[in-house]
């Protein structure tokens, strides 16, 4: 069978199999859907821990509020980038979109390392408490990553590893944002290091496992 006739045969067969399809929602709409789940978790945590302790902490150390804002922006932009990268033809430059939010998040958190000069009486996490943060971020990141990968399975991520890295970043930053609600300590060096390790673990796991799950195309 010649190549031309085999192409024609394949086209005929694909034509016979054609059924109407429901178009994929836009990356913005799917990002909104995923963020609604994160928001629902945030509401539950706010009901459990209350909003006042968080506001009180932010009042005492405004850089914590900036760090939280950076984490929220990173979660939104990384999720948007992941869903955009799931569509063929979208540029890899989408992966740079979360960078400004990340810089704000890391920069403001880094200020916590100077805490004993800025606000010496703030409560700082010890190693045991910092490990709680690690567990919190990782355990919230797992279901959030799983949900996003599930949503992306219907898309066509042609760059599976890069997409999975964005999934990991979105999940880890969303988890760090949620942690802010019930985080009783300031961002000291131990805490910052814990957050970095947690985000790194989540991103690496996603790149390794999520990349495989998303590479069916």
């Amino acid at each position: 069978m010649s190549a031309t006739s085999s192409n024609k045969t394949l086209i005929d067969r694909l034509g016979t199999e054609l059924v109407p399809v429901r178009r994929l929602l836009s990356p913005g709409q799917r990002t909104l859907g995923w963020l609604l789940v994160v928001a629902a978790i945030a509401v539950v945590l706010l009901m459990l821990y209350g909003v006042h302790p968080m506001l009180h902490r932010w009042e005492g150390a405004p850089d914590l509020a900036w760090a939280a804002l950076g984490a929220v922006i990173t979660a939104i932009t990384a999720a948007w980038a992941a869903f955009a990268l799931g569509i063929p033809g979208r540029h890899a430059r989408w992966a740079w979109v979360p960078v400004p939010g990340m810089l704000l998040w890391i920069g403001a958190s880094g200020l916590g390392c100077l805490r004993h000069w800025i606000a010496p009486h703030t409560s700082i996490a010890n190693l045991h408490q910092a490990s709680d943060c690690l567990i919190f971020i990782i355990s919230f990141s797992i279901p959030l990553s799983a949900l996003m990968i599930l949503l992306l399975r219907r898309a066509c991520p042609l760059r599976p590893v890069l997409t999975a890295v964005m999934v990991g970043l979105a999940s880890a930053s969303a988890s760090a944002s949620l942690l802010e609600i019930c985080h009783a300590y300031d961002a000291a060096a131990t805490d910052l290091l814990t957050h970095v390790v947690a985000v790194g673990v989540v991103v690496a796991l996603n790149a390794a496992m999520g990349g495989r799950l998303l590479s069916s195309y």
Binding site: N7, L18, V21
Partner: peptide, 15 residues
């Protein structure tokens, strides 16, 4: 042929 098959599988992703 591989591309045509992929187009068929992911045609719902086209905007």
């Amino acid at each position: 042929q591989e591309t045509l098959i992929t187009i068929h599988r992911v045609r719902h992703t086209f905007d």
